[in-house]
Design a protein around this nucleic acid. Structure first.
Lengths: 121, 121
DNA sequence: CGGAATCCATAGTGATACTG
DNA sequence: CAGTATCACTATGGATTCCG
């Protein structure tokens, strides 16, 4: 059969790239619950700048993870919401959190020094 | 009540950080199958430099995702293998790949221009 | 209100040469 | 063989100012 030897690590990298960015996960985490306006996101994410918020949202939008809706009002209003595509990632993200809680915090594999020694064979 | 409001996105970010690095996923993907020597990894990963391979392996080691074993031979031999911690990530990574294959390649949510328009309310 | 434009600091990545 | 050291480049993140 095909047995494409699927460059799975390629897919993995590309999928990973979509989520890479200091604030993307936090943004998506908020949007997971409800729709947010630009200013709301800014207030909800302490430490982020407009520059970064704009940039990250633009990337998320380009990747089809969030939808940006502009209301022709004055003053202007812009709302952001996540797409089904992003929502489908929920379980996987939770699995990653579960992994972290189980393995990430203990860090048992840390014997004496760096690198194990082995006496030849 | 505890109800820690679990900074899940914090855990998520830290877990994510462990895997961030241009070559880490590819390295782990290889080590998933068997033990590799330094030179083998270099040949198996086209485009990587010794510098980067060393750096990424060191980080993976520090994070407890791979184990480095030095054999006191001449010429020197160093082997790398993944830890149970890293191996436990397998299913999650596969879930991410599955997500990518289902949602990542279509990218349907791309109507006319950037940002949807909405006529006031 | 929700940006864009500009300038700047840092970290990650990469090529090359040298070493135990 | 398996690194380390050095330098250069690029991407990312951030502060500030200005605009429709």
């Amino acid at each position: 059969m095909a047995e494409v030897e699927t460059n799975m690590h390629e897919d993995l990298r590309r999928a990973f790239a979509l989520l890479s960015g200091k604030w993307k996960l936090e943004i998506m985490w908020l949007l997971y619950e409800r729709v947010y306006r630009f200013g709301e996101l800014r207030k909800a994410i302490p430490g982020i700048t407009q520059h970064m918020l704009t940039a990250q949202l633009r990337e998320l939008e380009a990747d089809g993870l969030v939808v940006r809706t502009v209301f022709a009002e004055v003053p202007p209003r812009v709302e952001y919401e996540i797409t089904p595509k992003a929502r489908a990632l929920g379980p996987t993200m939770e699995a990653l959190i579960a992994w972290w809680n189980e393995y990430g915090k203990s860090v048992p594999a840390k014997p004496g020094g760096r690198g194990r020694k082995a006496t030849s064979r």
